[in-house]
Structure formats: C-alpha cells, structure tokens
Amino acid sequence: MITTVTLNASIDKAYRIAQGLEVGSVMRVADAHDTAGGKGLNASRAVATCGEDVIATGFVGGHNGELLRSLLDADGIRHDFVTVANETRCCINVLDANGTSTEFLEPGREVTAADVAAVEDKVRELAGRSDVVTIDGSVPAGAGDDVYARLIGIVRETGKPVILDTSGKLLTESLCARPTMIKPNTDEIAAILGRKPSSLDEIVAAAREVREQHGVEIVVVSLGGDGAIMSCVDGEFRGTAPKIEVVNTVGSGDTLVGAFSVATARGLSLPERLRYAMACASANCLTPSTGNFELEVAERLRAQTTVERI
C-alpha cells in the first residue's frame, strides 16, 4: 500500500469559457468540472492507475471537504483524512477560447496545533501499514514550516521510504529529516545550494551535491521535455522520454512521484524506477485528465524511454 499526504487539499474547479477572458466583465462559463485537487491527490490517482492500493490522508474541512471525499470516492481512491473546522480551499483554473489558462489559487485556511498533532498520529498509523509514503505540495496556515520535517521523521521511524515533493522553505526546512527522495527543479536546487545550475553538467553536479550534503538517497531533477536527471547511490543517470504530441502537462510531475512510489514498492532497480515513472508522466501528458492516463500507453512509452548512466 502507498500512502499520500496532502495537507493543503483543494477542490480544483476548471472553468471553460467560449471567449477570451475580459477583466471587469461578466464572464459566463460554458463548462465546469470539479476535481479533488492537491499534488498528493494527483499522485494518488496515478498510483491507482498503475494498479496499486493507495490511501490518501491530510486535512479536509466543511462542505468542500465533504465534496472532496465524494470526488475521491468517484475516482476509487480510499481516504482517511483528519477533519478540521475550516473549509477546504478552492482553486480555479479559467481556460479561455485562446487556449490561455488563468489560475486563482486560494491559500489553505488555518489549522490548529491539535489538527497538526492529529495528522502526525494519522501518518504514523498509516506509514506502519504502507510500503511507501509520499508527502506533497504546500501547507495551510498554522501548519508551520517544519511540519514536513516532523512527518518525514515519523515515517522514517517506521523504516519506510518517504518521498517529498514540495518547494520553497518547506523543502529547505525539511532536508534535515533526510527524505528518501526529492524532486526539485532547477529553481528549487538554487534555493538549496544558493546558485542555479544552467548547463547539464552543472545540473548533474548540483543533484549529486544536494544528495551528498543532505543525506537524501535519491534526487530527481526534471528537465521538462529534455527528460530528467537522477543522482542516487548507484551514480548519476539521465532519463530521456520519446517525443510526444502533448495534450496537457498539468500534474505530470505529480504523476511521476506517484509512479516512482509504485516502482519503489515493487522493488525495481533505481534506473528502472526512473524509467517507469517517466513513462507514466509522459502518458499523463497525452490526456486532459490529471493522473488518469492509460496504462497501456505508459507501457508502450516505457519501452521507448531510455535511462543511461552519465
């Protein structure tokens, strides 16, 4: 079983409008779609698509929290959330006739120290029954910048691998707890090291430096359409996916995390974990939904994805 932790879950609302977005005007929505959102819930759908058992936890509250639970039920995702007093946030993505996406992202509403203690207990319980735990995304007000470090420590006490996918201070403040894997981009590498790598050689060296300095076992740096770099105990590797006609890149990083956790639970070698995860992330780019890719397509892409030692 894989557990995903999403402390700042949301109802993601996609609004499609038939014209260009006009500021100060009444805009009528042609089509609306609600999704249980947050990076960890996107990863949960990817895990389920891969055919593995997954359970989602984190904070939910109010009427939006009930809607989020029902949306996960419809997706076939098991969940065991901590219920909080404040409403779960909403995030709105307006997609206009020009193909432009405009997002309105609410902050997570405040949680209490008691809420945080409850989610720590929940993660401890679920980690003990899990093969892998992922901790994903941002956190609501009141959770604290060190909450992920504490959750990572709880998972590590159970002896289970823990994947951290976040950014900013949440990432830098959590490295002391030594997550098993992180997935920074070059901006996040810069926040950790104080310099931004530019060339491929610099990215490889930076990934190795982050791993060695902070005791992280696996550092995966996404290069977008140029693949990914992985630094691990076996060395440094570059993954290259086949060229595809992209439909939607939203959630491809979350899919990579979910699929990497699946490959970890299945005991694949480190290069094969990267190859499997990249193939699933590529398959996600071929569908309009997040995490609901076609597994057969992912398997075909996996055969065309290369991972080579640098």
Rank of each mutant, 00 (worst) to 15 (best):
residue 291 G to M: 11
residue 244 I to H: 04
residue 10 S to I: 05
residue 250 V to R: 00
residue 116 V to F: 04
residue 221 V to E: 10
residue 38 G to V: 12
residue 246 V to L: 00
residue 125 E to F: 02
residue 277 A to P: 10
residue 1 M to A: 13
residue 263 A to Q: 03
residue 107 P to H: 08
residue 266 R to G: 11
residue 183 K to R: 14
residue 6 T to P: 06
residue 111 V to R: 09
residue 141 A to F: 04
residue 129 R to K: 13
residue 245 E to L: 07
residue 186 T to M: 07
residue 290 T to F: 00
residue 284 N to W: 06
residue 303 A to L: 01
residue 52 E to N: 12
residue 135 I to F: 02
residue 99 G to V: 00
residue 39 K to Q: 09
residue 188 E to D: 10
residue 279 A to E: 15
residue 282 S to G: 11
residue 13 K to V: 15
residue 103 E to A: 15
residue 181 M to E: 08
residue 182 I to P: 04
residue 119 V to D: 01
residue 285 C to S: 09
residue 161 P to H: 11
residue 161 P to Y: 12
residue 119 V to R: 03
residue 150 R to G: 06
residue 238 R to G: 02
residue 166 T to W: 08
residue 64 N to T: 03
residue 255 T to C: 14
residue 119 V to Q: 05
residue 209 E to H: 00
residue 5 V to W: 12
residue 8 N to L: 10
residue 5 V to A: 05
residue 176 C to G: 11
residue 277 A to Q: 04
residue 85 A to E: 14
residue 283 A to E: 09
residue 84 V to N: 14
residue 162 V to I: 14
residue 88 T to K: 04
residue 222 S to V: 10
residue 87 E to Q: 15
residue 282 S to M: 02
residue 145 D to L: 08
residue 55 I to M: 13
residue 100 T to P: 02
residue 303 A to M: 05
residue 217 E to G: 11
residue 113 A to K: 07
residue 238 R to S: 08
residue 150 R to M: 10
residue 119 V to F: 05
residue 262 V to D: 02
residue 14 A to I: 12
residue 89 R to S: 10
residue 277 A to T: 02
residue 144 G to F: 12
residue 159 G to V: 14
residue 274 L to S: 02
residue 84 V to Y: 12
residue 75 D to T: 05
residue 293 F to Y: 13
residue 25 S to M: 07
residue 46 A to M: 06
residue 41 L to V: 10
residue 64 N to L: 03
residue 216 V to R: 15
residue 253 G to T: 11
residue 33 H to M: 14
residue 90 C to W: 00
residue 295 L to E: 00
residue 257 V to Y: 03
residue 260 F to D: 01
residue 56 A to R: 03
residue 209 E to K: 11
residue 5 V to P: 04
residue 70 S to I: 01
residue 227 G to F: 13
residue 192 I to K: 07
residue 183 K to F: 08
residue 139 V to R: 11
residue 202 E to A: 09
residue 249 T to S: 06
residue 256 L to P: 00
residue 92 I to F: 11
residue 190 A to M: 03
residue 213 Q to A: 15
residue 86 N to D: 08
residue 129 R to G: 13
residue 81 F to Y: 15
residue 262 V to Q: 14
residue 79 H to E: 04
residue 139 V to Q: 05
residue 233 V to P: 02
residue 69 R to H: 08
residue 225 G to W: 06
residue 50 C to V: 09
residue 200 L to K: 13
residue 101 S to W: 01
residue 283 A to G: 07
residue 276 Y to Q: 01
residue 270 L to R: 14
residue 49 T to Y: 06
residue 270 L to E: 15
residue 280 C to F: 10
residue 139 V to C: 11
residue 35 T to P: 02
residue 61 G to W: 01
residue 205 A to F: 01
residue 172 T to K: 04
